[in-house]
Computed example of a mutant assay.
Amino acid sequence: MKGKLFLFRITFFITAIILVFSFIGYRALACPNCSDEVRDNEVNCASDSLKEQEGLSCKLSLYEETLNHLAPCTPEAAADLWAKGIKSRNGILQYSMMDSQLKQKFKEEMVKNKNLCWITGTSSPWVENYKIISSKKIDNTNYQYIIKFQWGTSAGPAEPSENKLIIGQEDGKWRVKEIK
């Protein structure tokens, strides 16, 4: 019994060491623009605004990199997720469906408006629901979707609106290329 317990403790200890070193290495690779101090001390850097800014910038880089790897399987799913982002006022969801050119413009707009939380739209009117009302294939890699949004206010329904999206592939992933 003592031999098995000893073997378990050694195995546990070695596994813990491997996990710790793997985590440290991953963090260094995942966020090369962050200083070691920020990576190792994220919780304690709140008092120094420069370190806090660097930590937030690092996290944003990681989030953006993650979003670039996520993609819907169909152009219709890309259109639907973008519309869900509009309905929920979630700029990050909208951003995740955009191609690189739209992402750059969107990001610049968020910075210009000092919208650090990336909440889009307004509290009133709000999107009650939406529906993809038409879709058509433009060519082998591009599709057009028209999405109708039903708006609501505290005084009742507001005038519906429509957006025309061009969805295409970028690096093998379906992305919103144009919004009208």
Rank of each mutant, 00 (worst) to 15 (best):
T11P: 01
N44H: 10
A71K: 00
V38E: 00
Q150S: 10
K4T: 12
S96E: 08
D40S: 10
K148M: 14
K112A: 09
P72N: 02
A71M: 00
R9M: 09
Q101R: 03
K51P: 01
P75D: 08
G25N: 15
K164D: 02
A83T: 05
L165S: 05
S88H: 12
S61K: 02
E178Y: 13
F6R: 06
S35H: 06
Y95E: 03
I18W: 03
W174E: 07
S134T: 03
L102S: 03
S57R: 11
A71T: 02
K136T: 11
K177Y: 07
S154K: 06
I166F: 06
Q169N: 11
T153L: 01
I167Y: 12
I138H: 03
F8G: 10
T122F: 05
E64N: 11
G85Y: 09
G55M: 13
A46K: 12
A78N: 03
I138T: 07
A158D: 11
I133G: 04
N33V: 07
M1P: 14
K137W: 10
E37V: 13
D40R: 11
L81D: 05
V176T: 11
Q53C: 01
K136E: 14
W174K: 02
A28Q: 14
V38P: 00
S61N: 10
L81F: 03
S47N: 15
N90V: 01
I146N: 03
K173Q: 04
I24W: 07
L102E: 11
L116Q: 08
I179H: 05
C73L: 15
